[in-house]
Amino acid sequence: MVKINFRDTAAYYGAEPGGGAPTKVKITFVDSHDQPRTVEGEVGSTVMETARRNDIPEIAAECGGACACATCHVYVDSAWSEKTGKASQMEEDMLDFAFDVQPNSRLCCQITVRPELDGLIVKTPSQQG
């Protein structure tokens, strides 16, 4: 798998998004071998960007967050599914190209980090692409 890092334009140029006073939340990614990794995510960025910045495995994100590749598939922990909300129509369409899609499946480039998501837990699948 060819990894493409940081597709958001701000990151291309080395700038951090946000600008103002940064607000951080904790996000835990649990990999397909049940290994958890807890990292800090910045409010306003996406869960996918948080994963890429922290070298989380099992998130390919080939399209860099354009909702065009379905390689940022995650399963949202049941305690969090209400807070993360439902997939949009476009995201549902793109989920057709992910493997083993479940009712709690999301494309994590479409989940924006918000203060209410502090503590969020998502699970990554064994195969993205």
Binding site: M1, V2, A60, A70, D96, F97, G129
Partner: peptide, 8 residues
């Protein structure tokens, strides 16, 4: 048919 991915 699950779409395309980039492989070297």
């Amino acid at each position: 048919f699950f779409g395309l991915t980039m492989k070297l």
